[in-house]
Design a binder for these strands. Structure first.
Lengths: 111, 111
DNA sequence: TTTGTATTAAACCAATCAGTTATCAACTAA
DNA sequence: TTAGTTGATAACTGATTGGTTTAATACAAA
């Protein structure tokens, strides 16, 4: 029962097939059959994966004449990014410490 | 059956309770009881959530005398970040277009 | 040794998930 | 109209999830 959007997006992303579809859609619009092509999976399964991505807001239906190609909507990824941003400094901190350590070593050799 | 680490991390993050725990651990080490405190949930449930985070590599057991306080390991978030990086330009592109549009408007008012 | 505190494990339950097959709908082409 | 293609839906299955309660474990304090 994911009611919050961020959980929804993250769990949509937590599947290699769905991430693969997003990667494909990052190249440009694609039909469902095109999206299905790389996977050894029934069309029904593909359809379900797409629905998960659509519910998360990551994929939309374009309207091209009579066809309805899917297209990527990167918007919800922003939320993931801003969530991640609060932790970014934490792993960068380690680098900073290393950086300081290296400066320290350099300082030592200087004097 | 998530075998790939990225899916593992993402699905670990796809839960508000677990993200809350990470937020708490970002402040510093904490015992399981401390981590459980904000949630109306059995200790066993908390323990399970922690196990999910540990399996994803996001949380580790420290060893402080007789206690085993948990601590955050931000490492796996890097993978999420690098995955996200390939899409970052996609949502920034929209901003760029807006930016260009605004420049365009400004240019108009200038000439 | 007994008691209390902190944490995990086991067994269970209802809901969700990821896949299947089979059916259906819509639209294209003959 | 009759096929053929594209895609969605329904019903089912087995595995996983997120929670429960009830023990079990480990250790500290008395």
């Amino acid at each position: 029962m994911h009611t919050d959007p961020l959980s929804n997006v993250l769990s949509a992303l937590a599947d290699p097939t769905r991430r693969g579809m997003l990667a494909r859609l990052a190249q440009g619009e694609a039909s469902v059959t095109e999206l299905a092509e790389p996977y050894d999976m029934s069309m029904a399964a593909i359809s379900k994966h797409l629905k998960v991505l659509e519910k998360a807001g990551l994929v939309e239906q374009g309207r091209e004449a009579q066809y309805r190609p899917r297209k990527l909507n990167p918007e919800p990824l922003k939320e993931v990014d801003t969530w991640l941003a609060e932790y970014r400094q934490l792993w960068e901190a380690r680098f900073d410490r290393l950086d300081h350590y290296l400066r320290h070593l350099q300082g030592k050799s200087d004097g």
